[in-house]
Design a protein around this nucleic acid. Structure first.
Lengths: 195, 195, 195, 195
DNA sequence: CATGAATGAGAGTTCATTCAT
DNA sequence: GATGAATGAACTCTCATTCAT
């Protein structure tokens, strides 16, 4: 039963993720989720008792994580820093362009809460990204692949651009070429013969 | 009457702007606006018939526009490109850090609509920003103040960072020092002795 | 408007009183009141926001107060203590036998709350009754109408019997003859030639 | 199984009694009972199919009945009428002051039903009480212990006071001293040197 | 123009009751 | 017998919107 329950919970979260992707956070009602899942009103309450609870569960669900896996694999292999950075950017690009993403719902949700830096998963993720990029750049500089006087600054710049692209993708529209162009601009700045 | 009407309309928009700043777009009800304005329920309907209508009116209101004015003045004066870029960035910074801004409400609103590029004021504004920055950089390069191989790319980079900072300010928190740091990083990239 | 509002409020309370009389306290829903008043769901909420609020308003409404008026008149006139006690008992009897009374609803309500003696209107009323009866008996004794060694004890006895009759009337049924019989039993105990 | 069943039934009734004592009748849901018993929702329905059914079963359960036993014992022994009346009153007092009693739940329940005198267990119990007291008083008078011109009237008076005390204990609060005082007042009225 | 009472649709939530296991 | 997930009816409460004044 617990098995079945867990599966149903997962099913609900899967459907809810779609709903949040489409409608953001605040616009989603329990009724929306009920209808997306095609279950009864009361049935949903057996698993979750508010949209917030569902949303947080969706967020904390392990994602498909091809990305992290891929990154991990790359990090353990003997890929060059450039390869790895490219890989990282590829994942970011995927996230930026993903149709069904929780980006805006997260913005809505975390903008309302005023979480301290520690409690804010969005921030943690952001800072983790900076850390990764900085390390990759430093490795690349050491290996002679990159030229960069301020790896930390460059990493931050990259991540803010990614952030800007994410939100732009949802609000003003950004196509794949534009994403490539922006990321390439930064990458080229790191290249020995770059601008 | 028309005069009085216009004033009341303005009053409503002023109050509504505050409401949208605080609560985003979707969370705002006609009741919220009515209460913020301390007018009657029916009274509001004489001027606007939905929160969307109010929101669009708020957006299209001419803002205080010290910024644009200042910019214009600078552009007509004999300020250097560097001065003018600094001025532009100062305005951006103000917007990024403004407590009561419509940033998130706009994101919410325009994310829902799928407006074509032409109809999307957010996009127009974004592109106008790029245009301005690009021009300033080009002027600076011509004047020998800046060194930049790709003014358009640099302008885009700058604007995406600004966008990233705006959303970060609302969601994960960004203080003034952090904004300065990010903008400075870009500026230094333009300087003859920069990175 | 305030006039009309006040009238509607009164109207709601009148209807609500009937509902509480019939169904007690806990069984009454906002829907019940809405239906009794034949107003809209939301309309009721303009006046009251919970059944508790309505109930307390019903309780604190001034009653028809023939009783109190009558008593007051008698007290100011030159009625004998016996006449006045008879009058008091007549009012009690009316209350005991009243079809539409809030007795049980009050019991339900105040049993749930654990109000201190001061805050409990039921208790205040009860003690006021004892006080009145005691005074009347003392006056009667002084006037030679009654014989009573313990007016306070007798007053309490009377009021507890009244209380017992009230609840019995609602739960096991008590007819007028039975009420008369019980009250007469006590009265006769006060009479010079009584038991 | 039937043995086990009977035990479970008893267990449910025991727990349900507590629930009804605390929450009255109408406020109790099947869910409340399920939770108090820590059994499954469906499980309860194997034994009872409504709160009413449970409540009636609780009421008809033989109580601990030290009281009745004690009374019976006393009645068969050679106790004096005074001793026996004192015993009876002691039991009433216990009931009046019992924290977990079904008094209010019963009031709620039987007030809703409009049972005929025959079908109303509350009434039967009340009249049985009068009968017992009347007999005791008559025996006491015959034995010269009591003086009473109207044993039936006095018995009724006593029982209504008890009823009044029961309901007062639940609604306006009555402490032990007050109960003693009221009962003593009546007893003294029976005593040769009483009021 | 302006008011605010009134309506009713719709979302949230709780439970009695059923039923597959 | 026993379980507890699931359903759906019923209730609470909030607002967008209308309309008589």
């Amino acid at each position: 039963m617990s098995e079945k329950s867990a599966q149903k919970r997962k099913y609900i979260l899967k459907k809810a993720r779609e709903v949040f992707s489409e409608k953001g956070f605040k616009n989603v009602t329990m009724k929306d989720v009920v209808e997306a899942c095609d279950i009864s009103r009361g049935g949903l309450y057996l698993y979750f008792s508010s949209t917030e609870e569902i949303f947080l569960a969706v967020l904390s669900e392990e994602p498909d994580d091809d990305d992290d896996e891929a990154i991990s694999k790359a990090l353990t292999g003997d890929a060059t820093a450039g390869d790895m950075l490219a890989l990282f950017l590829k994942e970011q690009k995927k996230e930026i362009l993903r149709k069904k993403s929780l980006v805006l719902a997260s913005y809505e949700y975390f903008a309302e809460k005023n979480l301290s830096a520690q409690d804010n998963p969005l921030r943690k993720q952001f800072e983790a990204g900076i850390q990764i990029v900085q390390t990759l750049i430093e490795n690349g500089v050491r290996a002679g692949e990159f030229i960069c006087a301020d790896p930390y600054g460059c990493a931050r710049n990259l991540m803010y651009v990614v952030e800007g692209l994410k939100v732009s993708a949802k609000t003003i529209g950004v196509n794949e070429a534009a994403v490539d162009r922006e990321l390439l601009y930064i990458l080229e700045g790191l290249m020995p013969g770059g601008n």
